[in-house]
Design a protein around this nucleic acid. Structure first.
Lengths: 153, 153
DNA sequence: TAAAATCGATTACAGTTGTAAACTATAAAT
DNA sequence: ATTTATAGTTTACAACTGTAATCGATTTTA
């Protein structure tokens, strides 16, 4: 995988991408239909987002007559990863664990999910570290202050 | 807690809030200093964000002479919760577990974190559900398609 | 083949965000 | 009491977002 620039996908564009990721090869009309139902967007609105995604290189097009078939140019996992990392740009690296724990506490999970998470945790034990370094600038985190630890007031 | 509107906090505003959450009572100059170092913002830029946060009601002010002391009007946990839930607005509710598992796999975690996550998981076992319902509209998810389950291609 | 429907492209436009200078009022210093 | 330094407020402005109408080309239909 090359390390190309990956433009941001906005919330609205994300709605379009989900349709393309799900249906794989779609016309603008099919996308419009789905989002007219879900978001009550006029077809013109959906077209705008499709156009922007094409311009950003997130959608491939294949012309057939006067219309296009759209396919995803970026894969869903990758895009999700970007989304996920966004969560952690705002918190101390020492607070990541606690944040994930909160996520778990607030989520609705199935037994299968719990098993899956258990495995993920298990695998993590191998490369668990003793102490995570705080990556914050002074004034944005209380690590090291007071008792030399605990980002999680 | 009342159910007031909670305006969005943008990325840049978040930087300001972190300083206030950390230092509790600050002047604009202190905030400026921190962010001039971290983000290379001109003081005027920081002032803009402070002003917007005050207008949004995210910061309280107390006047002393011709300057203000700023304190947080919203608490960090709450704001973080909003941030976290944003992650899941773009995925199928059935994929939440898998997504958290990915988060774990990609995170740097300490032994303490792992213990903490283990506990969180353990607590979750009680109210784990047999099957999570897909909350997606047709065309944005493959749940129920093919084999009647699995959002996670 | 002329009319009607459709698709993609262009244009529009207000609100948000990032970035910052200019302005104004007040407090501190001389 | 002036001058100077500050702090907060106003104004600026481009890029990005959400939302959509209109236009121009083409295809389908009558």
């Amino acid at each position: 995988m090359s390390n190309e620039e990956k433009p941001e996908i906005t919330d609205s564009e994300w709605e379009v991408m989900r349709v393309v990721w799900t249906l794989k090869e779609v016309t603008s009309k099919e996308i419009s239909k789905v989002l007219e139902d879900k978001k009550e967007w006029k077809p013109a609105t959906t077209k705008t987002f499709i156009g922007r995604l094409v311009k950003k290189g997130m959608l491939h097009t294949e012309k057939t007559g006067n219309r296009f078939i759209y396919t995803a140019a970026v894969n869903e996992e990758e895009s999700l990863k970007t989304l996920k990392s966004g969560l952690f740009t705002h918190i101390c690296s020492r607070a990541v664990g606690k944040t994930i724990a909160d996520l778990i506490a607030e989520a609705t999970l199935s037994h299968d999910d719990i098993a899956l998470l258990g495995e993920a945790l298990q695998k993590k034990k191998k490369d668990a570290v003793e102490e995570i370094a705080c990556n914050c600038v002074p004034g944005q985190c209380n690590c090291k202050k007071d008792h030399g630890m605990d980002c999680r007031h």
